[in-house]
Design a protein around this nucleic acid. Structure first.
Length: 256
DNA sequence: ATGGCTACTCCTAGTAGA
């Protein structure tokens, strides 16, 4: 079973690349972030043609998450407990293939100390509360998505330049450690120890070419799932070529 | 030294992303 996460930065703009990648990769489950489309305009037909059904928590212009599956999926939650109906669409929880799958698009935070930064930290506090109340690390849990947090120095192209900056500030890194402490493993680090494994590169300044990236997209697994995880890959080729997302997909393979 | 792109919108400038 292959589980993937990809911030596509607009599913409508990215549809040709998404469908080509799905045909080539054939993942069983795909968590998408930043689909930037309302539920009624989600491209169900194009994805159904490739054998995927979709759960969608969409929003106009900003945010929006979806889960694509080849098999059955049951929606469990589409917002944090204390979010109201028009809250930012950043969460989708489903039961898929015996797993509790938590698809996360973490707030960016804009700038350390800003209102959006406070929202980011509070959003993660509430996500942690959701996990505490509604899930157990003793069960098969997959939490994945664009967390907008680079957890360690080796996850940043220039840690000294980034230290204290958005996505790499100490409170944000603590958020990531809190998720791990709750009972999740950073799946990529089960297999790879080296630095330079990035999932996002700024569109500007030729950042991809220069290797100026961050690892902010993650697949976290509870121990029972981690034990089945045989490989984790970053499809960095998806950052190349015409009209790429600024994020690359991450794909975890689980043994049956 | 700075910013360098992309995608969105009751669109052609402003906001946001990260």
């Amino acid at each position: 079973m292959k589980i993937a996460t990809w911030n596509v930065n607009s599913i409508r703009t990215r549809l040709p690349r998404l469908t080509a990648w799905l045909e080539r990769r054939r993942p069983d489950v795909v968590c998408l972030q930043e689909i930037k489309v309302t539920d009624d305009l989600f491209p169900h037909a194009e994805l159904q043609a490739l054998g995927y059904r979709a759960l969608v928590a969409g929003q106009q212009t900003y945010n929006g998450v979806a889960i694509l599956t080849r098999g059955e999926a049951r929606e469990v939650a589409r917002r944090l407990p204390d979010d109201d109906d028009d809250a930012q669409r950043r969460l989708l929880v489903a039961e898929v293939g015996g797993l509790t799958l938590v698809n996360v698009y973490g707030p960016n935070g804009q700038e350390v100390g800003s209102e959006k930064y406070a929202y980011k930290l509070d959003w993660y506090r509430r996500l942690h509360a959701l996990l505490e109340a509604g899930a157990s690390p003793a069960k098969p849990v997959v939490l994945c998505g664009d967390l907008n947090i680079a957890p360690e120095d080796r996850d940043v192209w220039d840690p000294e330049k980034w230290r204290g900056q958005i996505m790499f500030s100490d409170p944000e890194r603590q958020v990531f450690r809190d998720l791990v402490a709750w009972g999740l493993r950073d799946s990529l680090r089960l297999h790879r120890e080296e630095g330079g494994l990035f999932t996002w590169w700024d569109y500007r300044a030729g950042a991809f070419h220069r290797g100026w990236g961050l690892r902010i997209d993650h697949i976290l697994l509870s121990p029972a799932v981690a034990a089945r995880c045989t490989a984790v890959e970053i499809d960095r080729d998806e950052r190349k070529g015409a009209k790429p997302s600024d994020h690359a997909p991450v794909v975890a393979t689980l043994a049956d």
